[in-house]
């Protein structure tokens, strides 16, 4: 076996983290993206900018402030104590929360684009045929935006896998809890264990390539469908 037990543990943890984050962001990002695609209020610009913030903030800076916020004296820390779930730093769910925030634009923006491309017409048709807004969302919007959902999920998953700065800042590098693959590679490099670093990096690279290949090699049928408005 090329990889050590702790390497495999790190990869497994990474996949678990990325899957959890992708699932949660589908639940959170979909209504946000729908609102952004449909709203015409001025608040839309503000919310859109907030969602995009993680794109511009350096991950280590973001991680530092998330650490402050989640710490026992931070607002999130206060909240988690009141809710009785304990402190979040150095826990898996702390990483999940940070990653959800950090990967938010990768879920919301492709979805928003997909929703905007659908336009008003299919919704008007569905309403005139007796579909409630929720019904129309699931029977028309979701199928039409399917390529958007796929893109958003793959990007979110891949981005969480590749995330490093935020995890390093708030994770505490605990095996099985917060030592994800990217951190593990970094540790190998820092400890001059280049051979192990190379092997793990190769695994990550191949994984990412396959994921992205899946994304880009897909038939670009989304535009054709949504163009029919």
């Amino acid at each position: 076996m090329l990889l050590t037990g702790s390497d495999i543990q790190a990869i497994w943890l990474t996949i678990k983290l990325a899957s959890t984050v992708t699932f949660l962001l589908l639940l959170i990002g979909t209504p946000v993206a729908w609102w952004l695609a449909r709203s015409q209020t001025r608040l839309k610009g503000v919310v859109g900018a907030v969602v995009a913030l993680p794109l511009v903030l350096p991950p280590s800076v973001l991680g530092f402030y998330l650490l402050l916020a989640m710490g026992p004296n931070g607002p999130v820390g206060h909240l988690t104590r009141i809710l009785g779930v304990g402190a979040l730093p150095f826990t898996f769910w702390g990483l999940v929360l940070a990653s959800v925030f950090y990967s938010l634009p990768f879920m919301v923006q492709p979805l928003q684009n997909a929703f905007e491309a659908i336009g008003e017409r299919p919704l008007e048709v569905a309403a005139s045929l007796g579909a409630s807004p929720l019904d129309a969302f699931f029977s028309v919007v979701v199928p039409l935006a399917r390529p958007g959902f796929l893109t958003a999920s793959i990007l979110t998953f891949a981005h969480t896998v590749g995330e490093f700065g935020v995890v390093l800042m708030i994770g505490g590098n605990i095996p099985g809890v917060s030592r994800v693959a990217s951190v593990q590679i970094y540790d190998h490099v820092e400890a001059l264990e280049y051979g192990q670093a190379h092997r793990m990096a190769a695994v990550m690279l191949i994984f990412s390539f396959v994921v992205l290949l899946g994304l880009y090699a897909r038939r670009p049928d989304s535009l054709k469908m949504t163009g029919r408005g």
Partner: peptide
């Protein structure tokens, strides 16, 4: 919990985490 370097370790303590 492991800090990346000694000042990052101090940050973990400073923030109370």
């Amino acid at each position: 919990v492991f800090g990346e370097n000694i000042s990052h370790t101090a940050q973990f303590v400073q923030t109370g985490s």
